[in-house]
């Protein structure tokens, strides 16, 4: 396992190369000179505390927010292209909060996403049999987990060079989280994934590489397991102890400065 990983990490051509990516929302800088690469296989996790710019980075990659810098997909620069062309050149996007079209039916949501001549309907039907049964239902009336399936299905319908998946397990019940993780693991066999995920248990299970952001900048890159096993590092960069990784401790106010001087807030945070 580790040997295979090492082989991959030295494999040269990354599928996605980000260089000097900087983005603003309403005049405020949210992504600051971010550079990293995503290898052509497996799942790479994009980690960091809430609000450090993970979602903004994903959106900036496909041009949903104004940005500068270089985005190279499979060796081709795409940052001058409009969003729809970047997507068509082989990007599957699963946004934070799913963003299904609530007033369209499940079937319509999926049909809208088909961009290949021969979309992989059968694969999607096998992966998400539930959606087939609900194809006539308005997507807005589905449960959160079902909406996430629609959102994932929209990305998996097409042949992609990379999937950008933003917090797929957010707000889902543990059983559904496991299902989503399983789906992602299955998908990762054929397509590389850049995954934003708060649930470190899921990251541990899926991710090979890790890119860690803080304050809109990349502060750490490397092997995901190595990172998660380094308690001091995760404590410092994510503000959580990996022992409590599956609790939502990342949301607390446990700042590294505060924890260094006064341990009280960190304890309070862990209790939350």
């Amino acid at each position: 396992m580790t040997a295979a990983e090492e082989e991959r990490s030295i494999a040269p051509a990354p599928i996605l190369r980000i260089d000097g990516l900087t983005a603003h929302i309403a005049g405020q800088q949210v992504v600051e000179d971010v550079s990293f690469t995503v290898p052509a296989t497996g799942i790479t996790a994009l980690l960091g505390r809430n609000g450090v710019g993970k979602t903004s980075t994903i959106k900036a990659i496909i041009g949903l927010i104004d940005r500068t810098g270089t985005v190279e997909l499979d060796g081709v620069r795409v940052d001058r292209e409009p969003t729809y062309k970047i997507i068509r050149s082989g990007v599957g996007y699963v946004p934070e909060d799913r963003e299904v079209f609530s007033k369209l039916t499940v079937a319509e949501n999926l049909r809208l996403a088909e961009r290949d001549a021969a979309p992989r309907r059968q694969l999607v039907e096998e992966l998400f049999p539930d959606l087939l049964a609900r194809s006539g239902q308005m997507a807005g009336t589905l449960s959160g987990g079902q909406q996430q399936m629609v959102s994932l299905a929209r990305a998996l319908l097409n042949t992609n060079k990379i999937l950008l998946v933003d917090e797929p397990t957010k707000g889902l019940a543990p059983k559904i989280v496991a299902e989503v993780a399983e789906t992602l693991a299955e998908a990762a066999k054929t397509v590389p994934i850049l995954l934003v995920e708060q649930n470190l248990q899921v990251v541990r299970q899926l991710a090979e590489g890790a890119v860690v952001l803080s304050g809109g900048r990349v502060v750490h890159t490397g092997n995901a397991l190595d990172f998660l096993n380094d308690d001091g590092l995760t404590q410092r960069l994510l503000g959580v102890s990996t022992e409590a990784a599956h609790t939502e401790a990342a949301h607390t106010e446990a700042a590294h400065t505060a924890s260094a001087q006064t341990p009280a807030p960190a304890e309070k945070g862990a209790a939350l």
């Binding site: 496909i62 729809y84 068509r88 946004p95 609530s102 007033k103 369209l104 929209r154």
Partner: peptide, 24 residues
């Protein structure tokens, strides 16, 4: 129609339509 669908989806969430690879 497909364009009708795109318009309905676009009224709801235009940026997500482009993020599905559609020239809105």
């Amino acid at each position: 129609t497909r364009y009708g669908m795109i318009i309905r989806a676009g009224v709801e969430n235009r940026s997500m339509v482009t993020a599905l690879g559609i020239d809105v």
